[in-house]
Design a protein around this nucleic acid. Structure first.
Lengths: 230, 230
DNA sequence: GGTCTGCTGTCAGTTTATGGCAGCAGGATT
DNA sequence: AATCCTGCTGCCATAAACTGACAGCAGACC
């Protein structure tokens, strides 16, 4: 048996146990040495499996590694597909791919008739390539936001004057014509938003923002009065 | 990347395609030679994946492969949430509610950390109420499309001239300013599209369209050259 | 016939997997 | 305290596999 099939078998094996299992038991049932089993466990953990092991206990697989079957209504499927299509048509390559992957994963856990509904859905969003939204790699920014890391920004304001500042990013706004990075600006000591197409360059620091992003988001929502509430 | 993770990636990649994909494309996307890809396909087939390949065609993964997909990634969740927010901001009340319900159902099957990711996601879409998209209840149209029922349309063309016609609706296009109903018009005996805000009134008949909507959609895609391909 | 595609064989170089051994650490039991 | 069970890591030599390149065959389509 190849290693890749054994890893799948190991997942299935772990799912059948509710109580902790010793590594020795698992190794025997897979026909492999205890040393190899430890390596397999490490591999699965590296791939996202939430396997908890404790000395004296054994291993338990927390649910959530694999997608469980799901039920959605036809209209909910339509809403998801339409939204995913908008993302695919109007954002960037990374998000487009992520949207496609998400839909296919959801499709895989849907019953057959609903999967067909998802695949033949006929709500369309025209795809327009906009050359003017800038080449800034938003995936980097999204990642910094998720991790709560500060950014060093080289930015040009609306007059073209360049400034350098450190900000705590916490949100991205997808408007029709532009993308806006919203953050706490250490230069101005206030909330500021930055058009992505005016960011000249950007460095992700390894400094963690002291506050969580959703706290900053909540505070920002209160202070800012936009014509479009986001 | 190790082979076992690549095999999982390959399955996910195949899931995202509905049409046949060439082995060359898959090999490139996995960053591996074509020879290795053939071996990977063979390995997956040996493990039970129903991958069909035909000379001159490419590969298709038939649904129902025993292995459920892995959990959604953070970026996939972001894509879904962003899409749902666009739907909530830019469509109608029914779809908005459906999008919210879909997200909460997805949240219910996510492990705690990913659920938190979904709930505190900070990709925003501004909500603008547009008064000019018409008051037509698109939920009725979507339902007719799903069920494959014909519509009797009281429509005003761009000169304002009213016409009455029976159409087979099969798609809805969500453009930025307008929504477009796409159907086969029995009056003109051809594909036609109708701006939702110019539909004066509409009656859902109990006449079933003889062809499936995705067949009509596919035929329409071939014949129509739009500035925005949908 | 030409082209695109799937598919197989072979082979050498490289990488990875494997098991055994030793050792450390944490909790439970005695 | 002592002991046992367990998780976990480092090291190493051997064995297994993976990989890319090349060559070639076959089916479908134009």
């Amino acid at each position: 048996m190849s290693r890749s099939t054994r890893l799948l078998d190991l997942i299935q094996l772990l799912r059948t146990y509710r109580r902790p299992v010793s590594g020795n038991t698992l190794a025997q049932r897979l026909g492999v040495s205890i040393r190899t089993l430890y390596r397999d466990i490490a591999t699965l953990q590296a791939q996202g499996a939430d396997i908890q092991g404790a000395p004296g206990f054994g291993y338990v697989l927390k649910p959530g590694f694999l997608m469980p079957p799901m039920m959605l209504s036809e209209e909910e499927i339509e809403a998801l597909v339409l939204g995913a299509r908008w993302v695919a048509a109007r954002t960037d390559d990374d998000l487009r791919e992520a949207a496609g992957n998400a839909l296919s994963k959801i499709a895989a856990v849907l019953p057959a008739d609903l999967r067909h509904e998802l695949e033949t859905n006929s709500l369309l969003v025209p795809s327009v390539r906009r050359p003017d939204v800038g080449t800034m790699d938003l995936a980097v920014i999204r990642d910094a936001i998720r991790q709560g890391l500060k950014l060093d920004l080289d930015y040009a304001d609306k007059d073209g004057t360049p400034t350098t500042r450190r900000i705590w990013p916490f949100a991205l706004g997808y408007l029709e014509e532009v993308r806006i990075l919203i953050g706490w600006c250490e230069l101005r000591n206030d909330f500021r938003h930055f058009r992505a197409d005016r960011i000249n360059s950007l460095v992700v620091t390894d400094v963690r923002a002291p506050r969580k992003r959703h706290h900053l988001l909540a505070a920002w929502r209160k202070t800012v009065k936009l014509p479009h509430d986001m």
